[in-house]
Structures are given as C-alpha cells and as structure tokens.
C-alpha cells in the first residue's frame, strides 16, 4: 500500500511523475510550518500557530523522474495528537522535526517515530529526522552527533536545517525525493520484470513509462 505513487505524464514526456505525500510531524513551534514555507516559497516569516493541518505542494525534477510533493503540515501541540493519525495516514514520507535548542522536542520526535513504526512497515515510508533552528546553534541543547546517532540506529535520513537562514532545507526534501525514487526503482525491478528484464542493473530499474 505504501508507495502508491501515481505515475503520470511529465513535462518531458519521458520521465514519470510521482506524487508523494509528505507529512511534517513534531512538537509545537519547532519550525514545521517555517520549513514548509521556506521550501515552497523560499521565504521566512513568522507563522501563525497551525490548527489542524495546512497544505503545500512542490515539484522537484530529478534526473530520472519528476516528483510532486503534497506537504501536510500538522499542528504541533500535543493536545492535537488524537487527530494526527488523520494526517499521517497514507503518507509516503515523514519529517520528524525537532528544535536543536530544546532537548524535549527530540524526545517528542522519538515518540512520533514509535507511533509511525506501529502504523507503517519500514519499507512503506521514508522517515527523516530534522534538527531545525541551526541559526540558533549557540543555544544548542542537542548535539549534531546525538541526532545523527539516533537517526543511524533507526535507519532514518538525518539533517540539521535552518528555515530562517535557509540552511539545508532544500537538501532534506531532495534527499527524501531521491530516497523515494530509489525505492520506487528497486520495487519496480523486483516486482515487475518488464522491459529489458533485470540483467542490466544500471538502467532497467528506471520505469520509463511515458504518458
């Protein structure tokens, strides 16, 4: 069920277009909305507290495919927890965002991970751990190593970002896109030995469906 990406027509006509649902999860005011806003509008402004969920879209063109992100930016307050499963249901990727100047928010991100692990199989969802507010590195409570180590043991993508100073925001979404596409290709090569069969590991994994 996980990778139910929908290949469609792409502008180039050769590359498939995949649509992926990406959900942003994390404590309140760690910068989820700001990350989404920076990524989509390349700008920074003080966001209003998110009530429920807000939505963004963004296109990414990779070498082998185009990716359309549907970004679901959720409310961070713990009280909203009971409605959050409405939002991450069917997601292809999740960004677990914490604030590097607030240790508690990392713990909260770990809890989110536990919840996602209950809901998804490991190959159903790409999860990234994101330490935001790099611009406040002087007030850091969580070291880079700590975040990195946790991500490594759990097999998550990891990056430290700053929505404010535009540090690695694009990169993390790009990494997610690449990971998703790679999984797509792996899946295609194992499940459907169509096209030029599976001998050529280099290119045959690319699903070149046009139109």
């Amino acid at each position: 069920m996980a990778q139910k990406a929908m290949p469609g027509t792409s502008l180039e006509g050769i590359h498939p277009t995949y649509m992926y649902k990406v959900v942003l999860l994390g404590s309140t005011s760690v910068g989820k909305s700001s990350l989404a806003y920076r990524y989509v509008k390349n700008d920074f402004k003080e966001s209003l507290p998110t009530v429920g969920c807000s939505f963004f879209t963004q296109m990414v063109t990779l070498e082998v495919a185009a990716v359309k992100f549907e970004i679901w930016d959720t409310a961070g307050q713990e009280k909203y927890h009971s409605v959050c499963h409405l939002y991450y249901r069917g997601a292809h990727a999740a960004l677990l965002v914490y604030d590097i100047t607030n240790k508690e928010t990392l713990n909260r991100a770990k809890l989110w991970l536990r919840e996602l692990e209950k809901e998804f199989l490991p190959d159903e969802i790409v999860i990234a751990l994101v330490g935001n507010k790099m611009d406040l590195a002087a007030e850091r409570e969580v070291t880079t190593e700590e975040g990195e180590e946790f991500a490594r043991t759990k097999g998550l993508l990891f990056m430290e970002t700053s929505a404010k100073s535009n540090h690695q925001v694009n990169d993390i979404f790009m990494a997610i896109a690449q990971e998703l596409i790679q999984r797509e290709q792996e899946k295609a090569s194992t499940s459907s030995p169509r096209g030029r069969s599976t001998v050529d590991l280099g290119e045959s994994r690319v699903r070149t469906r046009c139109c």
Binding site: T28, S29, E46, S47, P49, Q77
Partner: peptide
C-alpha cells in the same frame, strides 16, 4: 510541571505574539 508547561506557560507566551500579528 513538564506536562503543565506546554499548556500554561511557554506555549501561551509563544502564541500570543502569533495572534493577529
């Protein structure tokens, strides 16, 4: 107090300045 904190303190403070900015 940790549980309370979110409810009563920092969050209110944070949100006030994010209300009708």
């Amino acid at each position: 107090s940790v549980a309370d904190r979110e409810a009563s303190l920092e969050l209110i403070k944070l949100d006030i300045s994010r209300t009708f900015p």
